[in-house]
């Protein structure tokens, strides 16, 4: 059962790759998407004060390549949005940043990804420690089937971040306040986390991530499963969080990228096509593919 589930997941992730493969084999198709030949990333991918810096990152699932030679820096305390058509590899790239791809047997990564100048794929680098520093919020809200309190307290508990119950209480409350959820749930902290609405669940997941006090938060389409009002709340939250955290957000909504991010990176079929100031990308894209995507000619 588990094997088959794994395979399904891999198949899901493969979807994008297969498309790439197919298009590559068949050559440019009628829609003209690929009339433009890729040379290298357009725009300034480097940052002065880089939190993350990735160089020549390639990712493979078994024999399929999902990411091709990506170079990208993420600045300290900036929000960077990764956009692109579905299956373009933006999620795969995101999952490389806290080594979530390690959980997939057939996934192989080469190139360098540095966090504060340290190679996170170095042998002595510990994935557990890394993930404590680089938290992640997933596409679908995934609260544990525990109470709201226990959900938020989970991270601090496993890492031993607090010395006593009072400290933990404070930490949980603080995280819930930061996630803008405290007022809504303060009366039922010990009620089940799965009993909340979708938007609340996602904010709970964000609170859960904040409670570990990470340096970077990765968000994988955090609002894609939510209604517009819940989405607005999440976006508001992201705007508040950027004071304290570096945030990498994958989104399929260009408006969202425009609203929350300072920089935007456009991925296409496993390659980073263009990166730059969010304003510039949306008003004056320099690459033809970016322009076509922004103007909605494919997506």
């Amino acid at each position: 059962m588990v094997i088959s589930m794994m395979n399904e997941r891999v198949a899901e992730l493969n979807l994008g790759i297969d498309m790439t493969q197919e298009i590559k084999q068949n050559g440019p198709d009628d829609s003209g998407i690929l009339d433009v030949t890729y040379s290298e990333t357009v725009g300034e991918y480097q940052c002065k004060d880089a939190k993350f810096s990735t160089r020549d990152v390639n990712v493979y699932y078994a024999n399929n390549q999902a990411i091709f030679d990506v170079n990208l820096d993420v600045g300290r305390n900036e929000v960077i949005a990764l956009i692109g058509p579905s299956g373009c590899g933006k999620s795969t790239f995101l999952r490389c940043l806290n080594r979530m791809n390690d959980t997939i047997d057939i996934c192989r990564i080469d190139g360098q990804i540095h966090l504060d100048g340290q190679d996170i794929y170095a042998k002595k680098q510990d994935p557990v420690l890394l993930r404590a520093r680089v938290g992640m919020v997933f596409q679908k809200p995934n609260p544990f089937p525990k109470s709201i309190y226990d959900n938020v307290a989970y991270g601090p508990r496993i890492h031993g971040l607090t010395k006593n119950k009072a400290e933990l209480d404070d930490l949980v409350e603080d995280a819930l306040i930061k996630a803008g959820l405290f007022d809504e749930v303060k009366d039922r902290l010990h009620g089940p986390g799965t009993g909340l609405s979708g938007g609340q669940q996602q904010r709970l997941c964000i609170a859960r991530t904040i409670a570990v006090q990470p340096e970077v938060i990765l968000m994988d389409e955090p609002a894609s499963a939510l209604d517009p009002i819940a989405t607005a709340k999440i976006e508001e939250l992201i705007n508040e969080l950027k004071e304290n955290y570096t945030i990498v957000i994958v989104t399929h909504s260009m408006q969202q990228a425009a609203r929350v991010s300072q920089r935007t990176a456009y991925f296409h079929m496993g390659r980073l096509i263009e990166v730059g100031d969010t304003n510039q990308i949306f008003t004056n894209p320099r690459h033809e593919l970016t322009e076509k995507y922004i103007t909605g000619r494919f997506g």
């Binding site: 557990v128 420690l129 404590a132 520093r133 890492h159 031993g160 971040l161 990470p214 340096e215 304290n244």
Partner: peptide, 15 residues
């Protein structure tokens, strides 16, 4: 930020 640094140390010590 210092919070995060402190936490990293705590996490490291428990590893």
């Amino acid at each position: 930020m210092s919070d995060a640094m402190k936490n990293t140390a705590i996490v490291k010590s428990g590893l």
